[in-house]
Amino acid sequence: MKTTKAYSAASATAALASATIQRREPTERDVQIEILFCGVCHSDLHTVRNEWSSIMATTYPCVPGHEIVGRVTQVGNKVSRYKTGDLVGVGCLVDSDHSCPSCQANVEQFCPGAVFTYNSPDKHGTAPVTYGGYSESIVVDEGMVLRVPLNLDLAGVAPLLCAGITTWSPMRRWGDIKGKKVGVVGLGGLGHMGVKFAHAFGAKVVVFTTSPGKKEDALRLGADEVIISTNAEEMKQHAGSFSFILDTIAAEHDINAYIGMLGLDGNITLVGAPETPLPVSAFALLSGRKSLSGSLIGGIKETQEMLDFCGAHNITSDVEVIPIQKINEAYERLLKSEVKYRFSIDMASLKD
């Protein structure tokens, strides 16, 4: 065991504060990583404040962070993919059982034995639960480590490990969207990545937003058009014309209004997670053979494919880099949507 600096929350009402945690020595299959940047995800805030207690109660102390970019400092003697000095990433998963049908199908996020990067039972017994990326270092199973393209800004790469793969996965699974009309609902941390990917895939990209002030930024990010969703006339003009819509909204909203935007065999996929169930009109789906689905991050193989694509097309997340000492302020700003579009923590600040 070794100690490392971190920022953790002692309870649902406590601010994140400097702490010392334990990390295991690398096993034969492990990679030890010095963390350089860690993105801030809204899931971090939900978990720290135990807002998902009915689904996954938080165990304290809680060290969040699952958008990790760093440099390999040590590898186990059976590690073959990585060596000391490599630039790598770690997303929402740090282990799985490697043998179940989900793992065999490269969708480890659905493995019954999946170990998430933080607040997940630690099978190594280092601590009651796993500790995430708001820390100096992390030790991860080789199979969950990702290679980072060398040409990309590392601060902007970090959010790709969650926001990036969360939007990439459903678009790729839906099929070739080149030339098709694709909608992105919401222009936040997830939505801005959805726009960038859809544009790179060659789709006609339309952003739905309630904020007229976001129009200019949506066009800058790659949107071809912006619809103000509170404008009934604008919505009516586009009814029944979309092949695919990515819904990134995590708050309660009228899902049926967007189902009505779909054409024949169109699909709307939820990647936002509203706490309150959304009423869905059966007739809205039946008319046009439309479908509603959900998607959760992505497997390791497709996450690496996403990173490689980003390297080839120079795609990163738009970030505001902060020191770890400003994380509590960042959480409050996150609640007010006062960031364009993700925070990325410079973990060198943890040494201060």
Rank of each mutant, 00 (worst) to 15 (best):
T20S: 15
D86T: 02
V195W: 01
I268P: 04
I300V: 15
D44N: 13
R23N: 14
R23W: 11
K340W: 12
D97I: 08
T47Q: 13
G164R: 11
S229F: 09
I345G: 03
A250K: 03
S243Q: 13
L219R: 06
V157Q: 10
V185R: 07
Q74F: 01
F242I: 11
V271P: 04
V185P: 04
S349K: 06
A155T: 03
G70W: 00
G263V: 02
I249H: 07
M306G: 00
A218N: 09
A223V: 08
T4D: 01
I33H: 05
G179E: 05
L190Y: 10
V94A: 04
I177H: 08
E108F: 08
I249C: 12
V280S: 11
Q104V: 09
D95Q: 09
W168Q: 02
T166F: 12
H66D: 11
C111Y: 09
D247C: 14
R24C: 01
R333K: 15
M193F: 03
R81W: 03
A348E: 14
S295Q: 00
S291E: 13
F110N: 13
Y118C: 04
W174T: 06
Y341C: 08
V339S: 04
V48Q: 05
M235K: 10
S295V: 01
L335F: 02
I177Q: 04
I138T: 14
R342G: 12
H192Q: 13
M56I: 10
A330C: 02
N151G: 01
E338Y: 08
D247F: 01
G133K: 09
E51I: 06
L296W: 11
S287F: 10
L278Y: 09
N328W: 09
M261F: 01
V157C: 08
V319G: 00
T126F: 04
G179D: 05
I68K: 05
D44G: 03
S18D: 12
G39R: 07
T130I: 06
E25C: 08
D224S: 13
W52C: 07
L286K: 12
E320P: 01
H66K: 11
I249V: 15
S337C: 07
T126G: 00
P64C: 07
D176R: 12
N256H: 08
L161M: 14
A9N: 11
G133S: 12
N231E: 12
A10E: 15
Q109D: 04
V207M: 02
V90I: 14
I315P: 01
L335S: 13
D176K: 15
E142N: 11
E332P: 01
V79K: 04
R29N: 15
P277Q: 05
I297Q: 06
T248G: 03
P64I: 13
V339M: 09
V115M: 10
G189S: 11
Q304I: 07
A348M: 02
P159M: 07
R23F: 08
M347S: 00
K214I: 04
C38N: 15
